[in-house]
């Protein structure tokens, strides 16, 4: 069997794939967090719960309504996005004039409520969610065996990240969003309905988290705590990439996922802390993050 730096090659490729999968979710989630933070200046602690709600929406749609994976990819983000829009209109929007800490506390409280509710209803154990028939099974790539669904997740997340990036960098709506991130008052003074833009952005960020949740359901199982397990790492990703930087969130997400996977191969003991060690180093050397602008 061939080896690379003394490690069997299939084990290495396997961990790189797992790293890419994890990185896909880091990228999708930190992207939404970065968009929300950039414009609303809210650290959305409910992001993990919104990811979990997306997965549960898919699970409930399948088991209670009989709606399968593909429609859920559309429906779950719409449902969770709509809930987020209501939350922004009725609660979050009242806090913008206050210290950012209040937005953080509100979203943290909401996350606890959502997680508590789903734990009460469904218990803490993970619920299985099968990948759709079209993506079941695997392929032998010659150097490793790859489950098709995992390949799909990596490709889908890349497409979603690219699509979101294009939306923000190349469209009129994206120009409003970038400009309002710099100076919301001036953009509103030009006649753009900024309060509505903020609502839309929060809804979009939450919908992205829910979409990640649906993609994750067949891989990680559906559980009320699936979001809180992930969200701490995602916050580290956002800090490393640079708070509010879209490109930073995407690139850092994949990069840290793969790095974490490689650490599992070469020095497993450090694999659960490697991301936080990198965060600490980045904060020391480049406090604004790898892609962040100094303010």
């Amino acid at each position: 069997m061939s080896t690379i730096f003394g490690i069997p090659a299939p084990a290495l490729y396997g961990q790189i794939l797992i790293g890419l999968i994890n990185g896909s979710f880091y990228a999708l989630l930190s992207l939404g967090l970065a968009v929300i933070f950039g414009l609303l200046r809210v650290i959305n602690f409910a992001h993990g719960a919104q990811y979990m709600l997306g997965a549960f929406a898919a699970y409930l749609l399948l088991n209670y309504v009989g709606i399968g994976y593909w429609p859920s990819l559309m429906l779950a983000p719409l449902i969770v996005g709509a809930v987020a829009v209501v939350i922004e209109r009725t609660m979050l929007s009242r806090l913008y004039s206050l210290d950012p800490l209040y937005g953080l506390l509100l979203t943290f409280g909401l996350a606890l409520i959502f997680e508590g509710m789903f734990r009460y209803w469904f218990g803490a154990a993970g619920k299985p969610y099968s990948p759709p028939a079209q993506l079941a099974g695997g392929v032998n790539l010659g150097f490793m065996f790859m489950p098709i669904y995992r390949g799909w997740v990596v490709i889908a997340s890349l497409v979603i990240c690219l699509g979101t990036w294009l939306l923000i960098e190349k469209t009129r709506l994206g120009a409003y969003l970038r400009a309002a991130t710099e100076n919301a008052t001036l953009v509103q003074a030009f006649g753009v309905n900024v309060p509505r833009l903020l609502t839309l952005t929060y809804g979009l960020g939450a919908a992205l988290a829910a979409l990640a949740g649906v993609l994750a359901a067949p891989i990680y199982q559906v559980s009320p705590l699936m979001g809180s397990n992930l969200i701490i790492i995602v916050f580290a990703v956002v800090v490393v990439g640079g708070m509010g930087s879209i490109l930073g969130a995407i690139v850092t997400g994949y990069m840290l996922g793969v790095l974490e996977g490689l650490t599992k191969v070469f020095y497993p003991e450090a694999s659960s802390i490697v991301i936080f060690v990198i965060m600490a180093i980045v904060l020391l050397v480049r406090p604004a993050g790898l892609f962040g602008r100094e303010e």
Binding site: R178, N183, T185, L186, F190, V194
Partner: peptide, 24 residues
């Protein structure tokens, strides 16, 4: 009027600090 309706009513504002956006 809310702020964004004032521009819609027909006032065009050129601020002292110019307000050119760096990300655009």
């Amino acid at each position: 009027l809310p702020l964004h309706k004032v521009a819609q009513a027909g006032l065009g504002y050129v601020p002292e600090e110019r307000g050119i956006f760096a990300s655009l």
